[in-house]
Design a protein around this nucleic acid. Sequence first.
DNA 1: AGTTATTTGTTCGTATGTATC
DNA 2: AGATACATACGAACAAATAAC
Lengths: 258, 258
Amino acid sequence: MTDADDTPMTPPTEEAPSSDVARGSGVALWKQIAERIEADIAEGRLKPGARLPTEAELAERFGVNRHTLRRALATLTDQGFIEATPGRGTFVKEPPLRYPITPRTRFSEIVSGEGRAPGGRVIGSRIEAADADIAAALKVPPGTEVLRLDMLREADSVPLTIGTHWYIADRCRDLDFIAAATGSVTRALEALGLGDYRRLETRITARLADEEERELLALPPGRAVMVVESINGDPKRQPIQFTRARFSADRVQLVVKN
Amino acid sequence: MTDADDTPMTPPTEEAPSSDVARGSGVALWKQIAERIEADIAEGRLKPGARLPTEAELAERFGVNRHTLRRALATLTDQGFIEATPGRGTFVKEPPLRYPITPRTRFSEIVSGEGRAPGGRVIGSRIEAADADIAAALKVPPGTEVLRLDMLREADSVPLTIGTHWYIADRCRDLDFIAAATGSVTRALEALGLGDYRRLETRITARLADEEERELLALPPGRAVMVVESINGDPKRQPIQFTRARFSADRVQLVVKN
DNA sequence: AGTTATTTGTTCGTATGTATC
DNA sequence: AGATACATACGAACAAATAAC
């Protein structure tokens, strides 16, 4: 049961170099260590991507057994602050990019807005027949010709998402060509007079990344991708585009503002 | 080019009832088979949860090699229509429950709205000190006492999500008790006069389910959970609750309407 | 608890038609 | 025409997970 506990708040004995965990203070040593390291990260003394000292070294520095130290690192790991790879070391994780889902969502604007450099390349494009899903989203009969465009998008040269876009083919001939030339779907659509699209509905699910996705997104095995399907329409809410994007769940956090 | 060729259409010596894939028709056998099975699912002849005949049997029924049949099943698998488990068989997937993310999102209302029976139980509750994340979300100083409530929620007795809710402790004494009694956080909050909360911001990410999550959600290894963090506030947009819910990505699709 | 049968998953090998250079 | 690459289709055998007894 939950008791409103009476443990005294541990005074911040900060003037010490960096060690000194308070033994017998009622707060578990591993918890004190975890909080210290978390504070180091939160306050920028440990920057994203930085490598932590080895477990042995940290254990010595805090004056605890390596097991105790590992208990602290374990909680930090599943809180998402750090990540350890056997043989390499333990690293401070990059904070995920906040990716807002709003009626007007543009990849490059979002990435620039977060102070990072958007990039990407067209993986491929072709005309295909709409299957049931695509047809329903675009409100056309199944089998209608659609232009499919596959893109890889990145921020600061780190791949974030693989996006597959479907457009009703006869509304946007040559879109793939223009997009490849300008490197921007948005600009290509503008060139065709279809620039002002807005998000009508977004569906989100997730699963394990498959091999192709791991390759393109540079992910180790066992990572998840978020599959974000969105129907985009013109100002009159007429669907003009259907997108299925697969985001690296490690590197992106979707944000819905209400 | 697929010419209207002069190869004699192989006579359907198949007098079998439902088979007959058209050989030499220009359409790959596996594709025809996949489309047939997809239609069977779409038109309800194969219901969600139903088990398909074994690969050997299907191959024989369609008059093709098992490889060819497997090629068809493979596309259906990654289109999300079916799912196979070695030793058990191949099953038609249940469609994921559509879970809207709106300012006013209530689990039980959503599940009932989809025609399924909401359920759940309290896993545990305790008073704890707010860590940096929780404190920031609730706009209180770190270390403030918060009531933590862990719940498992299900639809038709199938677990969908593990929700951890944090409330500012002194605003809702006895909430855990009332919630355990009534079985509904919403009702318990109403009893405390905090019923009319609304979602202020929602953050979504995903990762592999860990062992505890697999246990509670009855998931096999290698499945993903969506981690949905939401800040909920009163009508004056004052935060009163922070929730971190982990949804089975297999069984739920989050929907954002714009 | 252990054995067996069932069923999916994987890996060889072979042959054939089709599109491309 | 020839060479090459690629997708399609078939055959056989074995591995691995599961269910039933």
